[in-house]
Amino acid sequence: MLQTLAFYVFSALLVGSGVMVISARNPVHSVLYLIFAFFQAAGLCVLMGAEFLAMILVIVYVGAVAVLFLFVVMMLDINFAELRRGFLQYLPIGGLVGLILLAELAVVLGSWVVAPAANTALGAPTPAVAAVTNTKALGQLMYTHYVYLFQAAGIVLLIAMIGAIVLTLRQREGVRKQNVSVQLARRREDVVVVRKVPTGGGV
């Protein structure tokens, strides 16, 4: 009874915080709701017996990713009012992406019609709890059955990191930047002047 009650509490808080992530007007509040959602997801993982996943959620996502998002949002000088002005320009593209996602969700939810054997294919044999630990079972499943998806997720994160670097490297007026090629091309005669100062003629 206690586990069932905890499950419903964690699930309700997770769904509520997820809705607040996308509906909050302040981006800082949105990141804080995201951190709260990660904690609720970690609680659900503990209820399912996946302590390793719960620890990863708290350490990696809450301790690194979400805090990084929070600092990036607070440090970047983003004019959100200006970003909202071009909302109608991207509305057709956003609607198309939304329709594609809805079609994918419909295929997933109707998998018993499209692929009748999908339910049996998703069920992997569960090893004995006493023989294999939680972390070992997760590693075997991730690096054998889902190794290509794991590599694809790493590539997506790499592309996202490169995109974040490109977005932050904006050309700004009045900012002096180092040009290594110009520095290496300078000659001694251009920067050093040798003057003969007579005795007693110096300052």
Rank of each mutant, 00 (worst) to 15 (best):
T4M: 01
L5R: 13
F10E: 05
L13R: 03
M20D: 13
M20V: 12
V21P: 02
I22S: 14
S23D: 11
A24M: 03
R25A: 11
P27G: 07
L32M: 06
I35T: 08
A41G: 05
L44Q: 06
L47Q: 01
G49Q: 08
F52W: 08
L53P: 05
I56F: 07
I56P: 03
L57N: 07
V58T: 06
V67I: 10
L68D: 09
L68T: 15
F69T: 07
V72I: 15
N79I: 05
N79Q: 14
A81M: 14
L96H: 02
V97I: 04
G98K: 04
G98I: 05
I100A: 13
V113A: 02
A121Y: 03
G123N: 13
P125Q: 13
T126P: 03
T126L: 14
V129S: 02
V129E: 00
Y143M: 12
T144M: 00
T144I: 01
H145K: 12
F150D: 02
F150P: 02
G154N: 08
I155P: 00
I155L: 01
V156E: 01
M161Q: 00
G163F: 12
T168L: 04
L169W: 12
R172E: 12
R172K: 10
Q178K: 12
Q178F: 14
S181C: 05
R187G: 08
D190G: 12
V197Q: 06
G201S: 11
V203H: 09
